[in-house]
Design a protein around this nucleic acid. Sequence first.
DNA 1: CCGCAAATTGACAGCGCTGTCATTTCTGTC
DNA 2: GACAGAAATGACAGCGCTGTCAATTTGCGG
Lengths: 337, 337
Amino acid sequence: MRVRLEDVARATGVSPKTVSRVLNEESSVKESTRQRVLAAMESMNYRPSPAARGLAGSRSFLVAMLYDNNNNPASTYLAEIQDGVLDACDAHRYSMMVSPVRMRDKDFTRRVDALVSDHHVDGVVLTPPLTDSAPLLQRLKEHGVPHASISPVQHKGTIGVCMDEQQAARALVEHLVALGHRRIAHIVGIADHGASRWRLAGYKDALAGAGIPLDPDYVVQGEFTFGSGVIAARQLFALPALPTAIFAANDDMAAGVMWAANERGLKVPRDLSVCGFDDTPMAVQLWPPLTTVRQPSREMGKLAALQLMDLLRGRGPGLLVQVPYELMQRESTAAAP
Amino acid sequence: MRVRLEDVARATGVSPKTVSRVLNEESSVKESTRQRVLAAMESMNYRPSPAARGLAGSRSFLVAMLYDNNNNPASTYLAEIQDGVLDACDAHRYSMMVSPVRMRDKDFTRRVDALVSDHHVDGVVLTPPLTDSAPLLQRLKEHGVPHASISPVQHKGTIGVCMDEQQAARALVEHLVALGHRRIAHIVGIADHGASRWRLAGYKDALAGAGIPLDPDYVVQGEFTFGSGVIAARQLFALPALPTAIFAANDDMAAGVMWAANERGLKVPRDLSVCGFDDTPMAVQLWPPLTTVRQPSREMGKLAALQLMDLLRGRGPGLLVQVPYELMQRESTAAAP
DNA sequence: CCGCAAATTGACAGCGCTGTCATTTCTGTC
DNA sequence: GACAGAAATGACAGCGCTGTCAATTTGCGG
């Protein structure tokens, strides 16, 4: 029926344990035997049973991707990350489970317990804002389960992937300054997200660099959602001196700004320049297409998962790798009126 | 260390096999024993090992959700379905794996083989357009793995969930007719998707019902993507007699139409009414907000998975349940000019 | 050619559960 | 109250793999 380890062993003339060693890439196997075993596995189309490996061994070859299910961040972002993690899993014969958690719930770490004690996941990939949830990190540590983070706030001692968002935001705002804008507003994201802080910091850096004083009225709070972008924009439009450019901390809010601009009869970019952050698919679907910063989400998911697996497989220590950003100049920004 | 079945058995004073029976909801256990065992499980916080169950038994308590990774349909749609399937899994203590497949690849059914022979998935949830891929269905049948489909073309003998898309499309177009439109165009989706056929059929029904002759020039081919919507719209705008309304087979293409309308200087809905299908989050983020048909994706994912699990657990035969649609009238449609 | 440490390999038990089949305990019946 | 048949329970092996530790082979200096 099913080809088992034992069958491969018999075909090769070695013990099952040796085949097991080859399967697990242990070093203490003579190269010649290794080749023979590998050849037999290949020709017999051997596929190890994850259940048996999980039951007998200490590893499950399972990683879980956790995400906050409350609403944020945008589902396209998560979907891309998920695909990236799956890419990495394919490459190293790991399987992936996805697990939404509701951070608002008091005992949301229960989910982690289930994942760890039921499925014995070997590691976990964390997406924002889970990356910096103290109770979650604590629980993972208690379980002894390593994790990789995507865009974590805390860089020290963390493995995963990040981007220099502050620098990216700065570059974006400098682009606005170069277009002659002086009254530049910023819509901040959810407070405890690293992304919000970095993007705000980059905004401030750019203003300071250009010698533009920071006007508190021009910095309004949003929540990363389209609707919050609309509200924030209306707030800005109510100011005595309207900004000539608005930098929203993500594309969703930027879309909201453009919506509110339409509502108000402002023409983008003639009357108002708008830019966002993330370069979600929506960015090019807006009219006019949105100037934003491209974040390679799928790549980031893949890299984070690869770092995690390197760690799990004892290949290297696991790093926090940095990916480059890219400024996407489109038609939503133009010279100041 | 870990609480095992045996521990529960000892605590209750029964054999491990009896505890196993309770765990698996077998009927041949006296109610009183069942209660005692259940109580012990609860108080000892017993959690069965999926690996051991999978290895020893014939069931894995795993379902897989398959989707086409080429690009379609929109990731937000899939994400919602995924959340729905996860809801159902939570309810019945199943686990879920997600598996993107590339239908274009010649041997994309390999993925299924891996899922089935490696992980022994008990069942599979199919999303469009996988629901009607003959090679895939064939492979599943060979493996003896049941599946539930979301919006399958072939209703007969299929379990899962569907919506009366034809009727919904008809209602949508009738809405346009009621607004006085006579020159109504339709942008068709990818040819072999059921959604494309139904929506086209509903469009034709409505026209016929209103006594409007079908003009082949007004039916153009799209691919469900934003870009294809733009192209299709340009094509329609090149016609001698411009349509006064365009019904795109999904929201993405409708967004493309609105983009092209902007490009062409047409004002929606004054010069042109536009409507889509699906009610993705984007629909309310467009300017003006898009008239469309709401499809309860998450609910559909959940229902399909529940039907599958009912079947797997021997509870009922597994049905094809129908969910209601809802017409979302927004500002992108108005009286004909 | 021998002895010893290092490199390879193997024997065996057991991970936590369920399938099979045997056994015990109830039912209701006359 | 004895008995057939149904209901409930248990004994035991084994799912396919890996951890532990022992056995064997190899390489090398003398």
